Amino acid sequence: MRRRARTTLVDVARLAGVSAVTVSKVLNGKGHISPETQEKVQRAAALLGYVANTAARRLRGGATRILGMVVPELVSPYFAELARAAADAAGRCGYDLGLFTTSRDPQRERERIQSLLGGMADGLLLVVPVGAGEFLSTLEQSQVPIVLINYFGGATHLPVVRGENYEGTVALLHHLLALGHRRIGFIGGAEHSGQAKERYRAYREVMRAAGLWDEALVQPGDFTRRKGLEGARALLGLPSPPTAIFAGSDLMAFGVMEAAQERGLQVPADLSIAGFDDSPLASLIPPGLTTVAHPIGDIAEASVRLLLEAIEGNPVRDQLLEFPSRLVVRGSTAPPKTPLP
């Protein structure tokens, strides 16, 4: 039995009644082609099941018009919103966004990156990469442009776009201290995350400067609701529990709210709760979550713009773009019932 031949660009052109050059321009979004002709070509391509061979096009020196994006996971509202914003930014520039997840697995991250660098995309957005050292050195030699997003690891020549974490955390803690809280619990983020390390560093330094540092008030986390729930249960079970809990992400803060509900505590009357990210749900879940807004839109726009500059051959090595975060006060924080001096 003979194998069916792959549908070619010439086949699409024949069915649409146009030239192969016209088909190529339509499918690559180039040139000034009438809407009627574009519709004919797209309909013919769909009928024939034509799929462009982007890897072959790359080998011929052409462009795929695809930007690859590798994220740890999409369960987090933060990563989902970042991916959406990047897709919108890419679309406005005539590019599609190919999204890959790693489940925070370094080996899987490497496999996804290698696939994208093998011709599947014109450039790569790598979000909170867990690979470091020798692997990053290898990426610096890539012929495919790469932009790192929210990277806080060792020195690299790759361009980096990120949101600020330290000052936003300081502002949040000063807000809680000004309300009269003295026992402020903290639930950290994922162990490998440079962002989590920055938030913990700010918490430790602010609490030490205020003479309020207590190791018992720190719980490990991983940015998930489950870890927020577990960490809050441990903190609220202390002989002298905190009057406020700062979770290293909004998703963990929602877990803290669940733990408070389990104990019959009212938020914020009995317990103030704060998060980080200002995810879409932060303003919707009663009483509204006090949090630190990360500039997701700015990060996505700048990352795509920087990557397109690199694709066009402009120098972007060693560039670092950092956008400020912003404290957002809502109903989940209030003065404690019995403020300490």
Score class of each variant (00 low, 15 high):
residue 232 A to E: 10
residue 211 G to L: 07
residue 288 G to Y: 06
residue 273 I to R: 01
residue 314 N to F: 02
residue 235 L to S: 14
residue 245 I to S: 10
residue 241 P to G: 11
residue 229 L to V: 09
residue 268 P to V: 05
residue 225 R to V: 07
residue 220 P to V: 13
residue 276 F to Q: 03
residue 279 S to Y: 00
residue 243 T to W: 12
residue 214 D to C: 08
residue 303 S to A: 15
residue 290 T to A: 05
residue 290 T to M: 07
residue 222 D to V: 08
residue 218 V to I: 14
residue 257 M to F: 15
residue 262 E to Y: 05
residue 307 L to I: 01
residue 246 F to Q: 09
residue 228 G to P: 12
residue 227 K to I: 06
residue 212 L to E: 09
residue 232 A to W: 08
residue 246 F to L: 15
residue 207 M to T: 04
residue 221 G to K: 09
residue 266 Q to D: 14
residue 218 V to S: 03
residue 237 G to D: 15
residue 252 M to T: 11
residue 264 G to N: 09
residue 301 E to T: 09
residue 291 T to G: 02
residue 289 L to C: 07
residue 265 L to M: 13
residue 243 T to I: 11
residue 255 G to T: 12
residue 288 G to T: 03
residue 302 A to P: 00
residue 251 L to E: 15
residue 247 A to V: 11
residue 261 Q to W: 13
residue 299 I to G: 00
residue 208 R to P: 00
residue 220 P to F: 10
residue 280 P to Y: 01
residue 224 T to M: 12
residue 282 A to I: 00
residue 293 A to I: 02
residue 292 V to A: 03
residue 292 V to L: 06
residue 247 A to Q: 11
residue 304 V to S: 04
residue 229 L to C: 08
residue 264 G to K: 11
residue 235 L to K: 10
residue 269 A to I: 03
residue 303 S to C: 00
residue 246 F to A: 08
residue 286 P to C: 07
residue 283 S to Y: 04
residue 234 A to D: 12
residue 249 S to C: 13
residue 284 L to M: 13
residue 286 P to N: 05
residue 279 S to F: 05
residue 237 G to E: 13
residue 277 D to L: 09
residue 206 V to N: 02
residue 314 N to D: 00
residue 227 K to L: 15
residue 232 A to N: 07
residue 235 L to W: 10
residue 261 Q to T: 13
residue 266 Q to Y: 04
residue 297 G to M: 07
residue 294 H to Y: 03
residue 225 R to G: 03
residue 221 G to P: 09
residue 208 R to A: 15
residue 268 P to N: 04
residue 203 Y to G: 03
residue 268 P to L: 08
residue 309 E to H: 06
residue 212 L to P: 09
residue 252 M to D: 10
residue 248 G to P: 07
residue 303 S to M: 04
residue 233 R to T: 12
residue 270 D to C: 02
residue 236 L to Y: 13
residue 225 R to C: 11
residue 243 T to P: 08
residue 297 G to I: 04
residue 225 R to K: 15
residue 243 T to H: 05
residue 216 A to P: 02
residue 219 Q to W: 04
residue 277 D to E: 09
residue 274 A to T: 00
residue 253 A to H: 01
residue 235 L to N: 09
residue 211 G to F: 08
residue 223 F to T: 12
residue 309 E to D: 05
residue 234 A to Q: 14
residue 307 L to Y: 01
residue 209 A to G: 15
residue 272 S to K: 13
residue 263 R to A: 06
residue 216 A to I: 05
residue 216 A to T: 15
residue 278 D to M: 01
residue 214 D to Y: 12
residue 203 Y to K: 02
residue 240 S to R: 13
residue 270 D to G: 07
residue 243 T to G: 12
residue 287 P to S: 10
residue 214 D to M: 13
residue 267 V to R: 02
residue 299 I to L: 02
residue 305 R to Y: 06
residue 207 M to I: 06
residue 315 P to D: 02
residue 213 W to R: 05
residue 290 T to R: 11
residue 250 D to L: 14
residue 241 P to N: 10
residue 258 E to F: 02
residue 305 R to I: 03
residue 280 P to D: 04
residue 274 A to E: 05
residue 283 S to E: 14
residue 249 S to L: 14
residue 210 A to D: 00
residue 281 L to W: 03
residue 256 V to A: 12
residue 264 G to Q: 10
residue 251 L to P: 01
residue 311 I to M: 13
residue 200 Y to I: 03
residue 311 I to G: 00
residue 274 A to F: 02
residue 209 A to F: 07
residue 288 G to W: 04
residue 277 D to K: 09
